[in-house]
């Protein structure tokens, strides 16, 4: 590379916000579910990126690099709020009210319906925005830590080991959170989407 040619020409901080700001915001919002917190995280990530420009190798795209930084910020935020939640009831699964989905003998107390084969409305396109809104509505009914665990697992494909470490829970607790979360989401989406 000739000397007069500046290093890292691919990346210029003043363009980042314009080129990647919205994508970064969507990425954060989908995971953190709060627009103010998502904006805050985008800003933190961009500032961190400015400081650490040297770590951009040019091997990945600028977008990929920025999203990786943002992802770390999101995980920090989830770790922080799991710690706050740990002081409250929701992580204390032993003292949690029993799952109302099942009766005292552990048998189904609610109906589990057969959903249409077509998986209608989930094929992408305009309807996926509507599905996402229904999903977010259902997700907001879950304790935050359960919702975070579900998001990490389903959106980011994180392993249970990684999620346990991040949220500070045992694997048995995580399996229980994911089970109760899925059971509640399944019932909610059945009503609000799949059999609507």
């Amino acid at each position: 590379m000739p000397e007069y040619y500046p290093k890292n020409t691919a990346t210029n901080p003043s363009d980042w916000l314009e080129r990647h700001g919205d994508a970064m915001y969507r990425f954060a919002l989908m995971r953190i579910r709060d627009s103010e917190a998502a904006e805050e995280l985008v800003q933190e990530a961009l500032l961190a990126a400015c400081k650490n420009q040297a770590t951009f190798s040019g091997q990945s795209s600028e977008r990929t690099w920025l999203i990786a930084i943002l992802k770390n910020k999101i995980m920090d935020e989830m770790r922080r709020r799991a710690k706050v939640a740990a002081r409250h009831e929701e992580m204390d699964l032993e003292h949690l009210a029993p799952d109302p989905t099942f009766n005292r003998r552990g048998l189904w107390a609610v109906a589990v319906e057969r959903w249409p084969e077509s998986e209608a409305g989930t094929s992408g396109g305009a309807e996926s925005g509507e599905f996402w809104a229904a999903f977010q509505g259902c997700l907001s009914g879950l304790p935050q830590t359960w919702a975070d665990a579900f998001v990490l697992r389903e959106l980011d494909g994180a392993s249970t080991e990684e999620i346990c470490k991040l949220l500070g829970v045992t694997s048995t607790n995580l399996w229980t959170m994911l089970h109760r979360g899925r059971t509640q989401l399944r019932a909610c989406l059945e009503q609000n989407w799949f059999l609507k």
Partner: peptide
């Protein structure tokens, strides 16, 4: 329980597809 198994599978695929679609879209924005 058979229906539960199928439903949570459908739910997983639906969530992933919707997330991908949202990733590729231009809204919401800052």
């Amino acid at each position: 329980c058979r229906r539960y198994k199928r439903n949570i599978g459908v739910m997983r695929r639906a969530v992933r597809r919707a997330a991908d679609a949202l990733d590729a879209s231009s809204t919401p924005a800052l």
